[in-house]
Structure formats: structure tokens, C-alpha cells
Design a protein around this nucleic acid. Structure first.
Lengths: 180, 180
DNA sequence: ACCTGAACACCGTTCAAGT
DNA sequence: ACCTGAACACCGTTCAAGT
């Protein structure tokens, strides 16, 4: 005896994200999410496998929010990517740090990593350094954004960001074989 | 009517850390910690203000574990510090990532940051760049250690670490005014 | 197919009471 | 001073039942 669905995974995740943004990660309980949707907590289990799955879904939503890569020189592209991460971290400070706790290569992140590889290639990074250089600069960009979102840099975060971009350009130098 | 204390803050934190190391952060419950000590959960509240205070105490214990800085060239000292963070992260993979969520300057971390400042000065970093450069390299070292501990780099983490050290040395170049 | 009611084992935390 | 017993409001999750 079918029934018209009143909620779906998308609205469950949206409600969870809104709750996390407004009142922090610990405010994201099955009961709070359900109540926001006018439904009982048990209804959520048809759309998310567990609370851990719900939190995973929130992280996915953050990644989906990142803008597509822009054109420009390789260094401008790297800065734009780091900046996009930073903006997303500011919108979702409670959820963002979870990004650092996930495997670097998931199905959904693969395309994004490949994009960075392409940018690094155009910067002249040799193939054997690609994976490691990508990890280093991604760790730095993610770590900075997560740190800022967590209040680690209460003052002068903008200057630290600028310092970071200069630092990255110079740090890449030993790994570049040709100008891009 | 005084009683001899059966537990103190130190053993509460030690029990919590052991639990986190063995079974993860979510295994650290007041009941589990208490049971490990042969005591009721309510007994813990005389020694820690709350569960959040307990977790804060675990992070402090990790910091206390870091070895004192060693002598050597500035670059060797930076590498040694990053390596010490990495070893601590491996011993305590569940707790370590919490470090990235804390303010960079707390009373207890102040001395450590000052030590890095001294090393960076001896590398010839100009005074106006000191704070920002320190934030950048600390974010990178912490982020890498936390990422590795969380399983972000399942393969070739050692090579990535070496890449990171080269990257940092080169990244510092634009901020150095004299050889140290 | 989708949601609910009732139930379970657990959680952090309080407060008054015991020694 | 320090720990306990009893209690409270909450948590995630299950399962059978309703529509």
C-alpha cells in the first residue's frame, strides 16, 4: 500500500546542515533533524542508514558546494581553489573540519583531485611528485580553512592566507621542471 | 569527614586516553572511563568539570608528550618538530585531530609557539612575517599528522612527509632576509 | 512504500545522601 | 572530602504495526 513520501534524503541532509550551521555539530541529533522536518526520528532511517551516514552526507554536500574550477594561470587557479575552500569553511564551520578526517581519495573527490593534478602539471610539476605535492598543498589549504573556521586564527587571518599563497608558490619551485 | 581519594585527575585522563587509543573517541564515555577505574560515573565529576573538560585534558596530555626541542640547524629542528607531531599522532590517532580545532595560542601552547618563533628567527625570517609563517607551517605539520592518523594517506605517507619537508624549506625562502 | 508507537540500551549530568 | 544511589532528560536504533 504505497504512500506519498513526505521527506527524502535531500531534505534530511539540508535540515542537518542548517542545524549544524546554526547551532553546531552536537546539535545535529536524529530527534532535532526529525523535529525540524515535522516527522518522528524513526522516519529518518528510511533515508539515511545511520547518524554516521547522515554526517557523511553533510560532508558530501559541502563538497558539492565548491564552485567548478576557473580558467587562469596555474597559480591563480590554486589560489582560487584555496579561497573556495575557505568560503565553504566559513559558511559551514562546524561540518568543515570533518573533511580532514576522511580518506583523501573517495569516488566523489577523485574528480577534484584530478583537477588539481592538471593544474600542477601545467605548473611543470614532474609526474613522480604529483601525488605528494597535491597532498601537501591540499593538506595546507584544508588545514587552514578548518583552522580558521574553528577559531584558531582569531586575528589577521587574511594576512596569513596571503602568506600561505606566497609560501605555496615558492614551495613548489623545487618540484617544477618547466615553466607553465 | 575526609576520605582518602581513590582517583585523581591524572588517572582519569590516563584512563580516557587509553580508551581513546584502543577503541576510538566515541568509546570515551563517562561510564566507560569510570568502569575502567572501578568507580561510578558520578565520581569523575570531582576531577573533571564535564566531558568536554575531559577531552580537553586528553589534548593537553598529547601536548605534554611532545619532546623538548633538540639542538641543530633550523631546518633540522623544524623537521624534528614535525616528526615529533607525527609520532604523537600515530600513538593517539583518535585524539590528535582535536588539536586542529583549538585556538592556536593557549597558555600551554604559548611556549611551544615561542620555540618555533626562535627557530624561524634563526632561519632569517623577518619579524613581520613570523606569526603568519608560523601559522602556515604549523597548520601544515598538524594537518599532515592529523590526516595521516585519520587514514587519509593510506599509501606512501613517508614520501609525502619528505616532500613536505622539502616544500617547507623552499616555501620559507621568500621570507628569509639572511642565512641562519 | 513510508511513517509511527512503543521499547531498549545507553548517554551526560544533578543532587541529596552516605562515610 | 570523596564516592554512591537514585533520578532526569536525552540519545541512537530496533521492530512490529498502521495506512
Amino acid at each position: 500500500m504505497p504512500r506519498p513520501p513526505t521527506i527524502d534524503r535531500e531534505v534530511v541532509l539540508a535540515a542537518g546542515l542548517a542545524l549544524a550551521d546554526k547551532r553546531g555539530l552536537e546539535a545535529v541529533t536524529m530527534q532535532a533533524v526529525a523535529s525540524k522536518l515535522g516527522v518522528t526520528p524513526m522516519a529518518l532511517y528510511r533515508h539515511v542508514a545511520s547518524k554516521a551516514d547522515l554526517l557523511d552526507g553533510l560532508v558530501e554536500k559541502l563538497l558539492d558546494e565548491l564552485p567548478a574550477a576557473r580558467a587562469g594561470s596555474w597559480d591563480a587557479q590554486l589560489v582560487a581553489t584555496a579561497n573556495a575552500l575557505r568560503m565553504t569553511a566559513r559558511r559551514h564551520p562546524a561540518v568543515f573540519p570533518l573533511l580532514l578526517l576522511r580518506p583523501a581519495i573517495t569516488a566523489s573527490s577523485r574528480a577534484r583531485v584530478d583537477r588539481i593534478y592538471a593544474v600542477l602539471r601545467s605548473a611543470g610539476i614532474a609526474e613522480q611528485h604529483l601525488q605528494h605535492v597535491e597532498r601537501v598543498i591540499s593538506t595546507l589549504a584544508l588545514g587552514f580553512a578548518a583552522g580558521e573556521a574553528s577559531g584558531r586564527f582569531p586575528k589577521h587571518a587574511d594576512i596569513t592566507f596571503r602568506t600561505m599563497t606566497q609560501f605555496v608558490i615558492a614551495g613548489l619551485a623545487p618540484f617544477r621542471s618547466q615553466t607553465g
